[in-house]
Structures are given as C-alpha cells and as structure tokens.
Design a protein around this nucleic acid. Structure first.
Lengths: 340, 340
DNA sequence: AGAGCGTTCCAAAGCGCTTTGGCTCGTTTG
DNA sequence: CAAACGAGCCAAAGCGCTTTGGAACGCTCT
C-alpha cells in the first residue's frame, strides 16, 4: 500500500493525503479524519526511503564507531546503549553505527553527513580540543557530546557528569580520614573525563596542603590487568599510598587482586574508592570488601542523550546547552582511617 | 555533484555514467575509464537515499536490540560488535540497531523488513524454536544466526561455537582428574548455548557412569553476583561439588569470591573451569589462580558474521550453511586432582 | 545487397514521497 | 456589486538514482 493507491481509493490527491497524514493545516478536519482512518485501516506506512529522498531526513541517529584490530570498544558502551535504546524505542528512532578506522574517523563523519544518513549524531569519550567535535560542529549536523571537551572557541551541546566534583569529593573524604599519601589510577589521560578526575583529586588534596605526586598518578586503559599492574607498582614503592582512587570498577578488580597478592588488606592497609558507572553484572557492594564509589548511571545518560538528540532533530532544543550531572559518593567498607 | 551534473559535463547520458560506475558491461572500456576518472576527480558519490529508493538496497545490516527498563544488554555484545565493525568498516557497511520492546520484537522485525531498512540482519542468543528465527526466515530477508536454535523443520544459516564439545572436554578433563561430584553454573537455560553446554557436560560424566545432579546445575543470568550465589549454594550443600564448570568469566569472578568467603581454596578444594569469550578487560590468566578455560573469541565471530552477511547480500553465499567453530580448552592452575 | 547481429549509447519511465504554485469555491469587505 | 481573501483541494515538479526498451552504427554472413 503506497500513497498513490491510498489517495486513489480515497479519491483524493496525493498532496492532500500526504498533508493530512503529516498534520499540515490546509486540510479540513473531516478530510483528515477520513484519511487517517483509511491509513490505519489499511496499515499504510510511508516508505522511508522515498520520504528520505524527498526530505533528506532519515529518522536515525548516528554514532561513529572507531574500530581496528587493536581497538577495543569500551564495555561501558553497551550500558550507554541500553539507555539510548530504551528511549529510542519509544520513538521509533534507529541507531546507525558506522564503523570507522580509528585513525581516520573524519572520513566517516564526512560521509555520513554528506550522505544524510542520519539526522543527528552523538560523540563519546571526547578529548581536549577533540577534532571530531570541531568537525561535526563545522559540518552543521545536530549533535550532542557525551562527556566534555576543552579548548574550543565555540560552545556545544553536551551531557557530562561532574567528574571533577566526584573525585574532589572522593579525595576530600580520604583526606578527612587522615590519608596523606594518595594515588590515582585513572583512565587514559588523553580523555577529558580523566583530566577532570585528576583535577578534582588534586584540588581536594591541595585544600589540605597535600600533593598528588607524579609517581602516584597512573593513566591507563581500563582493564583488570592494568588496575593490577598500577596497584602493584604503587604499593611496592618505597612510599606506598595509603589510599587509592580508581577510575573504574574493572580496574578496581585488579587493585583488589594486587592488594591480596601483596598480603595487604582493605581497608586496613589501603583505602579504595572507585568510580562506578553502574553495570548490572558487576556491583561494588559485592566486592570482597564492599567498595566505596562515586556513582553515576551511564545508562541513564544514554537515555538522556537520546532524548536530547530527538529534541534537537525536531527543533525543540537549540543552542549549546551543556548539562552536568552531579555524582553520588557512596561510602562502603573499603575506606577507613589512614594506618598509623 | 550528482549524476546529472557529472553526466552533463562528460556529455554522456546518466544511463551510461551510471552503468560505467556500476561495472555494467555495455560500456566501452575507454568510456568507463573516462567516467571513473571524472567521478574520482570531482569526488562524485552516488546519493544513497536515491539509490536506495531505486534499488531497494540500503547497504546496511540490521540488528534488533531488545530493550526495556529491566533488560540488560549482554556485555559480550560489545566484543561481538568490535569484530563486526572491524569487518564492516572495510566494506562501508553500516550497522543499524533497531531498539525493540523486549516483549515484542516481532513488530520491529516486520518494520525493518517492510521498510527495507537493511539488506540483512543477524540474530543472537537464540532459544530453541526461537520465534524470531522463524519470523525472519518467513519474511525472507537474508540473515545469519549467531548461535543455534533447535526444533525447526527448516535449516538456516548460522555461526556457532561447539558449546557441547567444549563442555564435554571440560567435563572429561575434570572426570579424568578424579572428580566425582561436578557442578555446572550455566547461563540462562532458555538459551540454546546453555542447553548445549549442559548436554556436553552430562555426556562427559555419563561416559564414566557419573551424573550431574539436579541440585548441581544452576542457570542464571551471567553476573558476578549470580556466580557468587550459585557457588555459595553449591558449596554449602551437604555434598558439595569438588569441581565446577562455569559459563562465563564474569560469573567465575563470583565463584572465586564465594570460595574465598568460605575459606576454601582453588584448586585444592575446588577445581574451576570457565568459558572465556575473550574480553580485553578481563583475562583468565589474571585470576587469583589462573583460570582454566574453554576459549573462543566472540570478536572473531563478529567479524565472520559480518563477512558472511556481506556475502549473502551480494549473493555469494546461499542456502542454510551452518558453521560450527571448535573451542580450545586451555588448562591453567585452577584445576587439580579431586581432593581425597 | 540485405538481413542479422553485437556493441555502445540514450531518452524516458520508474522508485514513493514532499512541496510548490495554482485553481476553485464561497465568504467577506469597501 | 466588484474585488479581495481564505479555505480546501489538486496537478505536477522535484529528490537522484537505476533500469527498460530502443536506436544508431559498423560488422559479418549468406
């Protein structure tokens, strides 16, 4: 059933039927009702390919997925996706993943914009002065950044959590507990979130005249193994930290293992706080010693990004609105006063 | 730059230019070269929306993503995606994720097929007599199943690993080591892979006259917490197993924690084998006691599925070819002879 | 020489929608 | 009472590609 057939059986022009269906005003209410009714009865659904050719709108949102033999997709992605899908579903919005060479995402961005494959895109894990962001901004496609970048002379719409605040809180807590030698096991420090976390931590220490030593900051991809290695290196130092803040639950697994291997205990010898993005399959309260966390559901963020993208597509949202979510600090058994 | 302009500047018809570009034979080699050359020089790219309307082909592959507030996307998904993207990238194939109500995926399948949104789809985590599979088969869109179903009167193309064989091997190893009371901590037993694994395990035991007791099989969503719970229940039983096979590394984390909590040791009190889908962020060799695994890279599977989907789209692959990959059994420190 | 044929090209008809630019009424306005 | 106007509808022109059904041409073959 296409528009032609439908309009023919209604003895109306395609124009009128199309307008009736799309809510244009130059159609009488009675006609509209007739059309709507017939459309529903015959299960008419406009052909998206045709509509797309005519309007240039695709009804999809896009994401450029960096890939490559040595490129791992962040496991957080799937949780974000859950949230995104959750919202998108109710709006019949599909998501297009365009895999790109991790070393050359630009080509892919240009392609999907030139081809009008999607109505909007979102970017994640931005870096300071991230080229993708500048590019997408220049290309003029609606977008939202999940996370933040820095160092641009323009504003842009984003959704981020208060990473600096979160690690400031975490740091402050540890300092209040009397810890003097703190360490940070961070994510890749080319990404803004990691920079913000380090900044927050430093600020908390500075407030008490403390410093985060060079040797006490690690920036690594967030794997269990890297958490382990970083923790071993830190704890085997001549002046080991008495408290560690860690950027992910997965790394925290490695930290816990290292602590064990060294015959130390949490929180007796080491206090530990980690950031929790809220995975259904790994929960901080189930760590050997329940883990204190800075918590923020990445899934909710996904849903919110989808919502805002939809709003941007339909013109309800405009401008460079930044949105920063506060982060909960949840104290559990993994922190205690500094050992004497 | 569109076809009209390009053909005009070449003083050729659109027909000829289109044919030259798409490799049709009714164009002289010289003309083809001229056209190709001009197209490249002017950066001409056919408009996909137009091509799509004309041909009905979209150049995308689809996946229906079940979502819902209480539906979690499997973390394996992201690894599979890595592989898929890796292949798709080199072929400019995009992936469309269509979120669907987890309780009604059918509507979404029908929609994407009716709309011709994608040229092929893949399904994952099939169940026996999976309705989606029957549906997709009926709708006639090219597809591949990642995993297997059972109980159909038709064949279908799939890619699966030898789950039964893997757990048969694992079970046999444990039996050979003298274990008599074995247990299985499995994934959701409505999914075929879990059924196959149980089958393999039972077969291994049966070969030595052993049985897998009712109480010694757990089927749960693969989370750390469920692994912990299952292990506690098993180990606190009056006749605890001396060996456990576990369907995922994530669950194995929970098992290890439970063993610790109960003051037991691996492999002294309990031998443990788990299935490893090969996550970059959690590796069996990094478990407190290096974990023996049945290993199969889900990422490679993703790449292979993409490859086969592409082949199906272009007509290179046809029919109901099933492909079953063998699984490596990797023995590490977590297994030992049964305690006396 | 005329028929037959393969090669190379083209004009035009789709694909199914949206949107522009009227056209036809009946109603209001000066 | 003519002019102006708005409401409601329509025909047709896109959107940019693919594909059908020739046409023109130079050959070969009888």
């Amino acid at each position: 059933m296409n528009l032609k057939q439908l309009s023919h059986m209604l003895s109306l022009s395609q124009t009128t039927v199309s307008r009736a269906l799309n809510g244009y005003p130059e159609v009488s209410e009675e006609t509209r009702r007739r059309v709507m009714d017939a459309a529903k009865r015959h299960g008419y659904r406009p052909n998206p390919s045709a509509r797309r050719l005519a309007t240039g709108k695709s009804g999809m949102i896009g994401y450029v997925l960096p890939t490559g033999a040595s490129v791992d997709i962040d496991p957080h992605f799937v949780e974000f996706l859950s949230g995104l899908g959750d919202y998108a579903r109710s709006h019949e919005l599909d998501l297009v993943l365009s895999p790109a060479d991790a070393d050359d995402e630009e080509t892919t961005y240009r392609r999907i914009v030139a081809n009008r494959q999607v109505d909007a895109v979102y970017l994640s894990a931005p870096r300071p002065a991230d080229k993708r962001l500048a590019l997408v901004n220049k290309l003029g496609i609606p977008f939202i950044v999940h996370g933040r970048s820095e160092g641009f002379d323009f504003d842009y719409p984003y959704l981020d959590i208060d990473n600096e605040g979160a690690f400031h809180e975490a740091g402050r807590l540890l300092v209040q507990l009397g810890h003097k030698r703190l360490a940070l096991i961070n994510g890749n420090d080319r990404e803004t979130f990691a920079i913000h976390r380090e900044r927050g931590m430093r600020r908390a220490l500075a407030a008490s005249g403390l410093m985060l030593g060079e040797r006490h900051v690690c920036s690594l991809t967030m794997t269990e193994e890297n958490g382990y290695r970083a923790a071993r290196r830190l704890l085997e130092d001549s002046e080991p930290p008495t408290a560690i803040a860690c950027s992910s639950l997965i790394m925290a697994l490695g930290v816990v293992r290292a602590v064990r291997d060294l015959g130390l205990t949490i929180p007796g010898d080491l206090s530990l706080v980690a950031h929790d993005d809220v995975f259904p399959w790994l929960r901080p309260e189930n760590f050997p010693v329940p883990l204190s966390t800075t918590r923020s559901s990445i899934r909710l963020a996904g849903a919110r990004v989808a919502e805002r993208l939809a709003a941007r597509i339909s013109g309800l949202e405009e401008g460079a609105r930044g949105e920063v979510w506060p982060v909960d600090l949840v104290v559990r058994g993994s922190v205690a006063g500094a050992p004497v």
